[in-house]
């Protein structure tokens, strides 16, 4: 079915042949990795030629670079970034704390499971107008929206990870008379660390989503607001530029978290 890269047949009798084969493998892997982005950019170009209003990739990049030179733009970018960081930090803490309690305490979890599931299923964006009424158009509304978006994935995933942790770890902790606090930090958290990282990645991307959505709908400042503004004015190059900027923030943050995840999983 899936034939592995590299030949399946004869054993190389001299070192050079296997070296070449290894290098071929490397090239194959790298080219495999790059195919999708290259194709993606190519499709973008085609779209920009066929559809009048879609700007070409290089035009978008140029607009972004120009924008980054403007102080006002940079301050908007920074504001969005700060909102995201604050929202994510709070969401992570909330999600971890609540997720830990629910994950480890079965009766609590079963009692609150309906609440968690319901909260998970509702379109949380509908709460934004309420936030606007309470907090106004300022950053707090967008940050709160980011927190609401980001807490749930962390909570639910951590809860599920702890609940399905191998029971033998708890037994070992009990047998060795490890106190609850020490057990939490030295046994349970390390046991679910890889899943926790995945949960945090999801939480981050959702915090970004929450903040950006909120800025799109109604905000005083930020990249999301710029996005809508440039659309309304018809400045499509800058619109694409801001989209790119948001994408980079999202991918960058998730990428960093993924690096952390890699280092944790390395030995397992």
């Amino acid at each position: 079915m899936n034939d592995p890269t590299g030949s399946a047949g004869d054993a190389p009798s001299d070192v050079r042949a296997s070296d070449i084969r290894a290098r071929q493998d490397d090239v194959a892997t790298i080219s495999q990795m790059l195919i999708v982005p290259i194709l993606g950019v190519a499709v973008w170009y085609v779209l920009s030629w066929t559809v009048f209003v879609v700007p070409a990739p290089h035009e978008a990049v140029r607009a972004l670079v120009t924008d980054l030179g403007k102080g006002q733009y940079r301050s908007d970018l920074l504001r969005t970034l700060v909102k995201i960081m604050v929202a994510f930090s709070a969401a992570a803490i909330l999600g971890i704390v609540i997720g830990t309690f629910l994950g480890l305490a079965k009766p609590l979890r079963e009692a609150l499971a309906p609440l968690v599931l319901i909260t998970n299923g509702i379109p949380k964006i509908v709460l934004y107008p309420i936030l606007l009424i309470v907090f106004g158009l300022g950053s707090i509304s967008q940050i709160t929206m980011g927190i609401i978006f980001g807490t749930l994935p962390v909570l639910v995933n951590l809860m599920s990870a702890l609940a399905s942790m191998r029971p033998v770890y708890r037994k070992v902790a009990r047998m060795l008379e490890v106190g609850p606090v020490r057990a939490l930090f030295r046994v349970y958290m390390p046991a679910v660390a890889p899943l926790l990282m995945v949960a945090l990645q999801l939480g981050f991307s959702l915090s970004v989503l929450g903040v950006v959505y909120a800025e799109l709908i109604a905000s005083r400042d930020g990249l999301g607001q710029r996005l809508i503004q440039t659309y309304t004015i018809g400045n499509y190059d800058e619109m694409a530029a801001s989209s790119l900027a948001i994408l980079f923030i999202a991918l960058g943050g998730t990428g960093l978290l993924r690096l952390v995840e890699r280092s944790i999983v390395r030995h397992r």
Partner: peptide, 12 residues
């Protein structure tokens, strides 16, 4: 793509 807020494509 899971990590990307696809909403940014909405204006486009």
């Amino acid at each position: 793509i899971y990590s990307v807020p696809l909403v940014v494509f909405y204006p486009i």
